[in-house]
Amino acid sequence: MTKRLVALWLCALPLMASAGDFDLGKLLGQLAQTRAARATFIEKQYLGLLDKPLESSGELAYRAPDHLEKRTLQPKAEALVLDAGTLTVERDSRRHVLKLQDYPEVAVFIDSIRATMAGDRRALEAAYRTELDGHYERWSLQLTPIAPKMLAKVSRVRIIGARAELRQIEIVQADGDRSVMTIDKAAP
């Protein structure tokens, strides 16, 4: 299943642009080619409250342009689903609808990934200061929230990717807590 998706991704890739004229527009243009994707993730959270990092894992699913799911399976099952601007948390077959602006920490996470994957430059630049480093084979996009309310919770998001694939997402919160999510598309 995942293999087929990866193949799909690769097919979707147009001819490589040369490293010289690599910029945000080009990157987002490539990312926008992806119509749907699935992957697994492992996330490590470094919380000031706890002595040890917390680990969790699960699956990610994306469907262009505005559907994104983060399904945590370990240590417990809980899913975060963004669909057309509505964010829901699903647990024990119960659904809770969240208001994005009430949960900046969740909103920034889910919204930045969605906008990046959709190649939605307008949404991305409306909410974040963007900083792109590297080249198409290995890039790093740093997003800093513009809205003070968001910035009060989340200091920055850094997305590391290779070509049109996201590889790692690091979120640094205003209180110093930090999470690193590693995305693995090749996993079975």
Partner: peptide
């Protein structure tokens, strides 16, 4: 539970 998405709040 902190490791879950809802852990954020």
């Amino acid at each position: 539970g902190l490791a879950l998405p809802s852990g954020a709040w």
